[in-house]
Amino acid sequence: MTIFNREYLGHVSEPASVQVELGQLRLFAKAIGETRDIYLDEAAARQAGYRSVLAPPSFGTCLWSLAPRTGPDAEELGIDYRYLLHGEESFSYQGLIFAGDTITLQDRIDKMYEKKGGAMDFMELVATATNQLGEQVQQRRTTLIMRRPQA
């Protein structure tokens, strides 16, 4: 089967907390060609008026990959990585995320539906990220697609 498991439609995960590690941010920065010091160096970030090194705008997604899993795992969701595509990723920002923050994530499986006569199956997840100060720093919506394998 290459469809998302409808059993989990509407599922709300238990909150999961993850620490934003400086080394992780530096590796991410290296991968994307980010060389500005506020994204790499604590002293430089503080001097620029930030609490610590900044997490870049799309790093929020990574926290979901790095956090302990509290909801259904890929297998339970019916995900087959051979046929998985990323459809859309969307953030709204209420604040910034910094190295050393502890971010608590919570997500809800909002939609599951098919398109193209079942050739593609969609799952949309909505999620919030809240820091250790109780401030919600971002909301995220992600759309995953599973394509039906060629017979």
Partner: peptide, 25 residues
Amino acid sequence: SMAVLGRMVTEWIPQQQLRAYSARF
């Protein structure tokens, strides 16, 4: 690609000015 595109935006305007960012693949 979304991260690199985000870098183009934050090289133009500081990241704290960003309110929303979304991409379709």
